[in-house]
Simulated assay, not measured.
Amino acid sequence: MKNHHKEKNKVPYSESKKHIPSIELKKIPPEKALHLLRKAGYDINEEQSEEIMEFIYIIVKLTLKEFFTSD
């Protein structure tokens, strides 16, 4: 059962995406990411692993933009 309260407060991804720099990153294959996260002790499934990795890529892009651009 979904938590509707949580869903109501979410900002649509397309809306938040405009703030994420369009930096190309070499991505870890999903299977390897899942393996690494499970090896680190996280009890997650493939979908959760993909969401975690997408979040990490966003953080990396924002960090790269902050330190390496003159915006």
Rank of each mutant, 00 (worst) to 15 (best):
M1S: 15
M1D: 11
M1V: 12
K2Q: 11
K2N: 09
N3S: 13
H4I: 10
H4G: 00
H4Y: 13
H4R: 13
H4P: 00
H5V: 05
H5K: 10
H5R: 10
K6W: 03
K6E: 10
K6D: 03
K6H: 05
K6T: 08
K6G: 00
E7M: 04
E7H: 10
E7C: 05
E7W: 07
K8S: 09
N9R: 14
N9E: 15
K10I: 03
K10V: 05
V11S: 09
P12V: 10
P12E: 08
P12M: 07
P12S: 02
Y13T: 12
Y13E: 13
Y13F: 12
S14R: 15
E15N: 14
E15C: 06
E15R: 14
E15I: 15
S16F: 09
S16M: 11
K17M: 14
K17W: 14
K17H: 14
K18A: 01
K18N: 00
K18P: 00
K18C: 03
K18F: 07
K18S: 06
H19V: 04
I20N: 02
P21G: 02
S22T: 03
S22G: 04
I23Y: 01
L25V: 06
K26N: 15
K26D: 07
K27M: 15
I28Q: 06
I28L: 08
I28H: 01
I28K: 13
P29H: 03
P30E: 00
P30L: 01
E31D: 12
E31V: 10
E31R: 01
E31K: 15
E31H: 08
K32Y: 14
K32A: 07
L34P: 02
L34G: 02
H35V: 00
L37K: 06
L37C: 10
L37A: 07
R38Y: 06
R38S: 02
R38M: 12
K39Q: 14
K39W: 10
A40M: 03
A40P: 02
G41M: 05
Y42A: 12
Y42T: 04
Y42E: 13
D43R: 04
I44P: 04
I44T: 01
N45V: 01
E46Q: 05
E46V: 01
E47Y: 00
E47K: 10
Q48I: 03
Q48C: 05
Q48A: 12
S49L: 02
S49Q: 11
E50W: 00
E51N: 09
I52N: 00
I52M: 07
M53E: 15
M53W: 08
E54D: 13
E54W: 08
E54S: 12
F55Q: 10
F55N: 15
I56H: 05
I56G: 10
I56D: 06
I56M: 12
I56E: 05
Y57G: 01
Y57I: 10
Y57L: 13
I58F: 09
I58V: 13
I59F: 04
I59P: 00
V60D: 11
V60T: 15
V60Q: 11
V60H: 03
K61H: 06
K61E: 03
L62E: 14
L62D: 09
L62N: 10
T63E: 08
L64C: 01
L64N: 03
K65C: 11
K65P: 03
K65E: 15
E66L: 12
E66A: 13
E66G: 00
F67E: 15
F68M: 09
F68R: 11
T69C: 07
T69D: 07
S70N: 12
S70Q: 11
S70F: 13
D71P: 00
D71K: 09
D71V: 04
D71S: 14
